[in-house]
């Protein structure tokens, strides 16, 4: 009970914490204040509670696959926002100024959506567990999981923050690219599960090397959206999700050329 509650909360918190720490580190580096975080956290938490309260209605949508479709929609929305953010950031590398209002708005949306998505499961778990007898264990487990997740987020933030400006933005860009591709991969999986996308036999099975159950597997899942048995469709969408922002960056660099070429970094 303890371990499972730790894992449930840790996995969700870690996903959100990593994304948030990357975004805060980057907004510090691009000299934006981090006040937006409070708003997005509040929005995200209320979003998670509202979604958690209405999960039974949402589940009934689209012949019982409403949950998958909603989650996939949220993931894809986060992806789109991340692509926008990546493009703005890549422009920052070129001419050192950000569109403050737009950037802040995008970050608020990303974090609020991410917290809604990840928080819902925690809210549901919390409500489910407090019904049962063993809720003390679960609460202890949730505390442990959340603390570890938040701590990792903090350390990650300070790690990114300690890098030099261009270095940290470049690494942040790559991480965001991977995280965003992971979002697309998760969304495609959810849509396959809902039978909205065609199901296929898995392309490969790497669970012998890195099991999704293992700590490495979980970390890779959080960072890259790792799946041990992906289908061809998932892999293609993953690759596509990485190529699209890079392509857009190159178009931007072509249309508005400046001294630093991002692709050559």
């Amino acid at each position: 009970m303890l371990l499972s509650s730790v894992i449930i909360v840790l996995r969700e918190v870690l996903e959100a914490a990593l994304l948030i720490s990357i975004l805060i580190a980057l907004s510090k580096k691009t000299s934006l204040s981090a006040h937006w975080l409070i708003w997005s956290c509040l929005l995200g938490l209320s979003g998670a509670i509202v979604y958690g309260m209405n999960i039974n209605n949402v589940s009934d949508w689209f012949d019982g696959v409403g949950q998958e479709v909603t989650n996939a929609f949220i993931q894809l929305l986060i992806y789109c926002m991340l692509v926008l953010y990546i493009l703005i950031l890549s422009r920052f590398l070129v001419h050192k100024n950000t569109f403050h209002f737009l950037t802040r708005l995008i970050m608020i949306i990303i974090v609020a959506l991410a917290i809604t998505r990840e928080g819902t499961e925690i809210v549901l778990y919390f409500f489910s567990v407090t019904h049962s007898k063993t809720h003390l264990t679960a609460v202890v487990g949730m505390t442990i999981g959340a603390s570890i997740g938040v701590s990792v987020g903090f350390l990650f933030y300070y790690l990114l923050n300690s890098l030099k400006l261009e270095q940290s933005i470049f690494i942040g860009l790559i991480l965001l690219l991977l995280v965003s591709a992971g979002m697309v991969s998760q969304a495609s999986l959810l849509l396959i599960q809902a039978d909205w996308l065609p199901a296929q036999l898995p392309l490969w099975n790497s669970s012998a090397f890195i099991s999704e159950k293992s700590v490495t597997g979980q970390l890779l899942y959080v960072l890259l959206g790792y799946e041990s048995t992906p289908t061809a469709l998932q892999v293609s969408l993953y690759v596509l999700a990485i190529i699209v922002p890079i392509g857009l960056m190159q178009v931007l660099n072509k249309v508005y050329p400046k001294k630093i070429n991002l692709a050559s970094l």
Binding site: I8, I55, N56, S59, D60, D63, G64, V65, Q67, E68, E121, L124, Y125, F127, S128, V129, H131, S132, L189, I192, Q193, A194, D195, A199, Q200, L201, P202, S207, S211, E212, K213, E227, S228, T229
Partner: peptide
């Protein structure tokens, strides 16, 4: 209580709300 159907091997994860039903498509699988 709610329950979350989860399988790493099947790559599936879905919350099944208490007193409700949920639909999950699995396969094709070897």
């Amino acid at each position: 209580t709610d329950e979350e159907f989860e399988s790493y091997e099947l790559n599936r994860e879905k919350v099944i709300v208490g007193q409700r039903k949920g639909v999950i498509f699995i396969g094709p699988l070897p």
